[in-house]
Amino acid sequence: MFRLIIDFITALSKLLWPILAFVIFFTLKKQIIKLLPRVKRVKIAGQEIELDEAIDKFQESVKKSTDEIPEQPTSDEKEEQAVIRSVAQDPQMGMVILAREIEKEIRNLYATMGMLNERNYVGLRQALEVMIQKSYIPKHTAASLEIFQNLRNAIVHGKEVKDEKEVIRVLDIGMTLLQTLRAIPHETNIVYHAEIDLFSDVKCTIPVNDAKGLILLTISPGGVEENYRIYPTTKIGYYKKGKQVSWEWDLKKVWLETWYKDPKTKEIKQAWNSSGNFIGRHVEEL
């Protein structure tokens, strides 16, 4: 009988111990979590540092980037609102959206600066390396992009980042970085008029059958000067008015002296003395 009582008490203790541990944990949860070590490290430039320190470095680097490019453009409200909405629902999703916008801006810079050369795709790292090498992207902006990429990987793919405040802080700094990228001086070309008939004589009686004229609105890197320039293109029926285009050429095809009639005034004008084939693509398609 005594042996049965001992066995009963032993069995009961085994049953109650997990329940007791469960109660203790939830009663003292906050105190226990504070005592647990927080593994929150990010690798920056080959070295592992604390996440808070990494975010501080990111903020400092972006500040230097904005100093390199003092004039910042007005923000894109639609994109900002998309990030803000995603932050309210899921800060990590906000990070994904912001990273996508930054990558898109880098690819747009690469294309509009004439480095795409008819390729359908260029890796982000390759595009960055080329633009940094050519000094199109200032050094502090390049450093900020590297830190952002590491923070983004830690937040989106890692398991160590649990504090949403840290994610929101990175997003806030990242939005400034995006605006800095958009402020990098570069020429912008926008379709003004397409499908213009071309002629190989000054009286516009002999048509050019293998190309059409494309008038581009070219905005200077500073955004102050605007010019209209006409080029020949074999991409007939492709260009849409108001679309920004990449700067791409096929120099295997060349037209000599050519004339056209101004689409507004109908005045006969010389288009060019010699020109290659413009084959730029709508930037939104890249």
Rank of each mutant, 00 (worst) to 15 (best):
A88K: 08
E80A: 08
D52Q: 06
A21R: 12
T74M: 15
Q31I: 13
V122D: 14
L109V: 02
L128P: 04
I9C: 08
E48M: 06
K139N: 08
S144T: 02
L12A: 14
P70H: 01
D76H: 12
E101S: 15
E101G: 07
L124T: 13
F25R: 10
M115G: 08
E79M: 08
F25A: 09
K14P: 10
Q126L: 06
T66S: 03
T27M: 09
V130I: 02
K14Q: 05
N153W: 06
T27C: 03
P73G: 11
L16K: 03
L16N: 11
K139T: 09
I9Q: 06
A54E: 00
R100L: 14
Q89N: 15
E77P: 15
N108K: 12
T27W: 15
V39G: 04
L20H: 11
L151P: 02
D90N: 14
K139P: 06
L109G: 01
K40E: 03
P91E: 02
V42A: 04
F22G: 11
I132C: 08
E48G: 00
S86N: 06
I19E: 13
L15A: 09
I97H: 11
D90H: 08
I9F: 14
E105Q: 10
M113W: 08
I155V: 02
E105V: 10
E105S: 09
A99R: 09
I97G: 11
E146P: 15
M95S: 08
E103R: 12
E129I: 11
V87A: 03
H140D: 01
Q89D: 04
Q133C: 06
A143S: 10
N108A: 11
A99W: 03
K43Q: 12
A54I: 03
V23S: 05
K40W: 03
S61C: 00
I69A: 02
Y121E: 05
V83H: 05
T112S: 00
I32C: 02
R41D: 07
K40C: 00
M113F: 10
I24N: 09
R85E: 14
G114N: 01
I9M: 13
L35T: 02
E146G: 10
I32N: 04
I69W: 07
E53I: 07
E50T: 01
A127G: 11
Q72S: 08
N108F: 10
T74I: 15
L16C: 12
G46V: 05
A154L: 11
Q59R: 01
N117Q: 15
K34V: 02
R125N: 12
L16P: 11
T74C: 09
P138I: 06
A45N: 09
L12Q: 14
F26I: 15
G46L: 06
E103N: 12
I137Q: 06
Q59T: 01
L151S: 00
K64F: 05
T74G: 12
V87R: 04
S86C: 06
M115L: 11
S65Q: 05
I19A: 08
L15F: 15
E53L: 00
P138K: 03
K57M: 02
